[in-house]
């Protein structure tokens, strides 16, 4: 984004009464990212990060920031939410009235707090809840910390790294993931031989 377009965005924010609002809860959840503009009336295209944009539909206000937990995120009033391209929604924001202003928002994240997300079943978790959890085996041996999650066609993989940088990929199947203790930020996994490399694991090839 060039400087002039950023200034344009700031001017638009200045006209918006909500621009100086501070979030009451930490903005720990990325709901989507503004990937472009739509039309001439200031609508933006948002690539949503959930399975649908239902959570965006129910929002009357959204925070736009550059990163998760951004304390400088700006609050915008939502005027319109509509269907967009695949995995995208169209968003109309108050104070963003033309294409140039919408273009200036490109790249910003649509942020929200935990309360913006729908409640889940007992055996379901949001990815951001798992990232950062300590992983250990049933006998208490530390495997590392969940750094990220990779989506595969089957069970998603917990990418677990320890202090030395050793990486383990652990499928999130019930047979392997024995316990997820969210308040304790702890995940207990089955110590299947060869699955978890604690330094001297045997391997077999085919």
């Amino acid at each position: 984004m060039n400087v002039s377009s950023r200034n344009l965005a700031n001017n638009n924010l200045a006209n918006n009464n909500l621009a100086d609002e501070q979030p009451s809860e930490p903005l720990t959840v990325e709901l989507g990212r503004i990937v472009g503009e739509h039309g001439l009336k200031g609508q933006v295209r948002v690539r949503f990060f959930g399975e649908s944009y239902e959570h965006l539909k129910s929002c009357t206000q959204v925070w736009l920031g550059e990163r998760r937990g951004d304390v400088n995120a700006k609050l915008h009033e939502v005027q319109f939410v509509g269907t967009g391209r695949a995995n995208e929604a169209r968003l109309g924001l108050k104070g963003i009235a033309d294409r140039d202003a919408a273009q200036a928002l490109r790249g910003l994240l649509v942020l929200g707090s935990e309360s913006a997300l729908e409640p889940l079943d007992d055996d379901e978790f949001y990815w951001h809840q798992l990232v950062g959890c300590k992983v250990e085996t049933e006998d208490g041996q530390s495997v590392g910390t969940v750094r990220e999650i990779w989506e595969t066609g089957a069970h998603d993989l917990l990418v677990v790294r320890d202090e030395s940088g050793r990486q383990n990929l652990i499928p999130t199947a019930r047979e392997l993931t024995q316990l997820i203790d969210l308040p304790g930020r702890r995940i207990v996994v089955a110590a299947l031989p060869g699955l978890i490399d604690l330094g001297d694991a045997p391997e077999t090839e085919a």
Binding site: V29, G50, E124, F125, I149, W150, G153, A154
Partner: peptide, 25 residues
Amino acid sequence: GEFSMTRTFRGHTNRKEGIRGGMKR
């Protein structure tokens, strides 16, 4: 091969993770 993705997409933090016996979703 269907379950070993050749391209990694990162960044979805509000995806649901189902820890179930079978496949997710």
